[in-house]
Design a protein around this nucleic acid. Structure first.
Lengths: 113, 113
DNA sequence: TTGACATACAACCGATTGGTTGTATGTTTG
DNA sequence: CAAACATACAACCAATCGGTTGTATGTCAA
């Protein structure tokens, strides 16, 4: 269970760790784009862009829909929100730390007494 | 400018893309830990854990404070929030797409007229 | 002062990454 | 049908990654 969650987190953060992929994700979140149209935007081969799209797809950040000979890619905002949730968990851990510090201050009114 | 932002995003997402590093980050967000204490938690060498800590530090997710011969690591929640902000930007791009679709529906009352 | 401890860092290794080119397959169009 | 287009995927390559061991340096304690 938790292992699969970590696998998914690995995939999500790794997919987001490349600027070309983040740029592709922005475009497909804004609207559907074929792989060819996306590839035309970058100074790299079609195959390279196609691989980036595949990484985003495997992470679940993007879904593809076939339309004739084209493959239309669309960003999945739910996956982006899943990453936000992971980060919220980190922030929650930090809040726990602050809460413990506050509690300590309340319990021992002043260390120099 | 924007280039440095992308460098930082690369570093942040890359740092978060490894489960050991995410686990270390949770621990140091919850409270200060020396590198040795952290290293004892994982089935890998001290040097490996030290490198993970260094990756987190370079990304700004963690800061180190020297205390005698120990190096105490502490998570920086502001860096975590910076990642949240990056994701909020993605979600905003998606909202723009939905807004455009809504506008289109409002402008062309019904496609089958 | 001499060990033991805490850390840093270099050198190395196998696996993965991000890129390339080339080839194969399905789809549209003249 | 044939040619052009859109995609997929394999093979390859240099660079980076995540791990190892070994060595050096600074700090604490007997």
């Amino acid at each position: 269970m938790a292992d699969a969650d970590e696998d998914r987190a690995d995939a999500l953060f790794h997919a987001l760790s490349d600027r070309t992929r983040r740029d592709i994700l922005r475009r497909v979140l804004a609207g559907e784009h074929s792989v060819s149209v996306l590839a035309a935007k970058y100074e790299m081969s079609f195959a390279a862009v196609q691989k980036h799209v595949a990484v985003l797809e495997r992470a679940g950040l993007l879904i593809k829909r076939r339309s004739g000979r084209e493959q239309l890619a669309s960003g999945d905002v739910a996956a982006v929100q899943a990453v936000s949730d992971l980060l919220a968990e980190f922030e929650q851990v930090w809040r726990g730390r602050i809460a413990r510090i506050d509690e300590l201050i309340a319990t021992e009114p002043s260390p120099e007494d």
